[in-house]
Amino acid sequence: MTLLHLETISKRYGPVAALDGVSLSVEPDSRTAVVGPSGSGKSTLLRIIAGFEFPDRGIVRFDGKQFAEGPAGVPAHKRGIGIVSQDGALFPHLSVADNIAFGFARGAPDRARRIADLLDMVELDGAMATRRPHQLSGGQQQRVALARALGRRPQLMLLDEPFSALDTGLRETMRKAVVRVLQTAGITAILVTHDQTEALSFADQVAVLREGRLVQAGSPQTLYQHPRDPETARFLGDAVLLPATVTNGFADCALGRVPVESGHAGKAEIMLRPEQISIVVDGATPQEGGRVVDVQFGGAVCTVAVALPDIALPPILIKTSSIALPALGALVHLGVTGKAHVFA
């Protein structure tokens, strides 16, 4: 039982292919993040789901109903899908209360109560109701936009980079609040973002778009640990990529012998996340050594660059605590925890 089903969606703008055969399924009560660099087509995908645009080819099916097949289908105002966009898109000429009640049926008897409930739901003070959008902070505007969309009790909520205009601290608070609200209301959500941390921490399912194609979709853990290609690996976080020779579940690389989770044999590129590599002081599991070429003190997390001998690789950057930082020029050994990922 899937709620939303996209089948080989393609969309061109003149010579540019914004989307090229994208297929994706979204389960009810789940949270999906569509992530990709700018220009990857993620916003176009969202606009096609919302019904603001129609694909050139492909099918959009929602809750058993056909919403679009090629350039024909149900227009946005008949879909009942909620959307919260980048800067909220509040109606500047209406008060907060009128914004929230905008989607209500005409003459709804319990208007005032519903407005109060929705304000409460998005954790805004009831006194805000009479304010105008420009009198609100960015975070408050987003909350009102969410309340406005929730007022229609949609089954699906689209979130179009709703946190990107907010300050870093506020962004996390808002993300948690939105997850809480959607979970309570039992609404399926699709978040579009270019921020991979946001995508990984928000979603049950992450879909990576690149140049209009869906590169990989799956759980955040799967994507982070087993990305399909080096580009996806680097997009989802810092990655150490090394050439290696793989035999019998082990890879021989510049860091020595590292366990892998792959039946692959022969030459391959492997990936380690920086948090898997540590500077070994006591030499319990000594691997190959290197020379410290740069130390950047950064408070809680410091960065140490280690150049490996005899190999034409850029220095490996290791995140470590500020306790017992090695000195510049010191010779250190590097230890690896967990398994490396092999690109087949």
Partner: peptide, 24 residues
């Protein structure tokens, strides 16, 4: 985006013009 928001809230194009575009 404001007009899109109005459409997602269930307004037909003509209603979007009179309730959202014209007031602005």
């Amino acid at each position: 985006a404001v007009e899109d928001a109005a459409a997602s809230l269930g307004l037909a194009p003509v209603a979007v013009f009179f309730r959202v575009v014209l007031p602005q």
